Amino acid sequence: MLEQLVQLDTDLFLYLNNLGTTTWDPFWMFYTTKFYWIPLYAVLLFLIYKMPNPKIFILTVVLIVLMISFTDQITNVFKKVLVMRLRPCHDPLLEGLVRLVKPNCGGQFGYFSGHASNSMAVAIFTGFMLRYRFKYLLYILIAWSIGMGYSRIYIGVHYPLDVLSGWVFGGLSGYMFYRLDKYFQNRFRMR
């Protein structure tokens, strides 16, 4: 059963990865680069700052930093200790079949995607936090995270299952930290 799932994942990866063209490569490289999303993160932080209780903004920022650190570290534990599944661009069985868009492959192991988990955690946390003012922001941020996950397949560094697992873990983490933030906000208001 597990072998069939891995084979299906590999087949889906090869199909999606090989849909790419040199015309779209610059777009997906731009999309997958975290640096270019700093303006989005700044806008989201500004919107959180403008919430009805800006006094607890620092606490929220600390929780966001902890959330990203948490998703990053758990991702690394899965990649480097628990699963150790080779990235498709490092897999010798796929040599010559993978369209690697970036100049290098990255770390040796790829299960699960840190980009997918971090972006989904940010999407869920921020989307829930700001839903009282921006009704559709959660859906827009989830779509952004889906694009982030797809970009990892497109450029050749993650299998679809890496990305899907990252989204699930990131979504759960984002919601958990959102609930934790709400808990601390309520405790802070009581004093």
Rank of each mutant, 00 (worst) to 15 (best):
M1T: 09
L2T: 04
E3G: 10
V6I: 15
D9E: 02
L12Y: 13
L12Q: 13
L12T: 13
L19Q: 09
T21W: 14
T22S: 11
W28N: 01
F30T: 01
T33M: 00
W37K: 06
W37G: 05
I38M: 04
Y41M: 04
V43L: 15
F46L: 11
K50S: 03
K50T: 00
P52T: 11
N53E: 13
N53Y: 15
L66F: 06
L66E: 14
M67C: 15
D72L: 00
Q73S: 02
F78A: 15
K79Y: 15
K80M: 07
V81G: 12
V81T: 10
M84V: 04
R85I: 10
R87G: 03
P88G: 10
C89Q: 01
H90A: 13
L93R: 12
L94K: 03
E95I: 12
V98N: 00
V98P: 04
L100R: 01
G107W: 05
S113A: 14
H115A: 00
H115N: 01
A123T: 03
T126H: 03
F128Y: 15
L130D: 14
K135I: 10
L138H: 04
Y139R: 06
I146W: 00
I146F: 11
I153H: 02
I153V: 10
I155V: 08
V157P: 13
Y159E: 07
P160I: 01
P160E: 11
L164T: 12
L164S: 12
S165E: 04
S165A: 14
F169H: 03
F169I: 00
L172T: 09
S173F: 05
G174P: 08
G174W: 03
F184A: 06
R189G: 11
M190T: 10
R191W: 05
